[in-house]
């Protein structure tokens, strides 16, 4: 079972989070821990995260990834997290198995893009965008464990605030991670 390995015992563990191809629901769930967030802020330092606005991930003890891998940017961020985080956690259905975005996998990429940018309702200037600034799409949306090694998995769409809290407190205290029945669900 995974236990916390912190580089510098005196420092607070650093935690980074990112949302790849997800809906920010898992992050919202994290905020749903309500007043416990104050405890959390006392216990950890946040590195890159939508909660901090730090844009690049530094060396961290824990990385939480929401969302699957759908484009080149997702790939880059995920790999950077894997390089910098001692423990990487797949948070939520999309990170775990692709989730709802992976429902596009039933279609070829051309169909998806044409539906959105060519034939779709309300499209004014039909044409698949080619701007090099836009991350390229992968032909399918993949769960993150198909790209990098994942150390722990928190299923749910999203995992409930309690599930996240159970995980975080166990991880912080170095206890084995165990959930009550109602905290593990895939939806």
């Amino acid at each position: 079972m995974l236990s916390r390995e912190v580089s510098d015992v005196s420092a607070k563990p650093r935690v980074a989070t990112a949302s790849l191809c997800g809906c920010f629901g898992c992050h919202t769930s994290l905020l749903d821990i309500d007043e416990r967030i104050l405890q959390l802020v006392d216990l950890v330092d946040f590195d890159r995260s939508p909660l901090t606005d730090i844009k690049t991930v530094g060396d961290c003890d824990l990385g939480l990834i929401e969302g699957g891998v759908a484009n080149t940017e997702n790939l880059e961020v995920l790999r950077a997290f894997r390089r910098h985080c001692r423990t990487l956690v797949a948070v939520g259905a999309c990170a775990v198995n692709g989730g709802v975005p992976a429902m596009r996998n039933a279609l070829a990429l051309r169909e998806c893009l044409e539906e959105s940018y060519v034939r779709g309702v309300g499209v004014y200037h039909p044409g698949i965008p080619r701007d090099p600034e836009i991350p390229l799409l992968l032909d399918r949306v993949h769960p993150i464990h198909e790209v990098v090694k994942v150390d722990y998995v928190l299923p749910g769409c999203p995992p409930s605030a309690d599930t996240l809290w159970t995980f975080l407190t166990a991880w912080l205290s170095g206890q084995p991670i165990a959930f009550p029945y109602t905290q593990i669900h895939y939806d």
Partner: peptide, 23 residues
């Protein structure tokens, strides 16, 4: 990875005509 990452971008490259280093 369980799949070939670069090959997974081939259809997007073809559809957008992009083929730079970043692609």
């Amino acid at each position: 990875p369980s799949f070939d990452l670069d090959a997974a971008l081939a259809s997007a490259r073809a559809l957008t005509g992009r083929d730079g280093v970043a692609d």
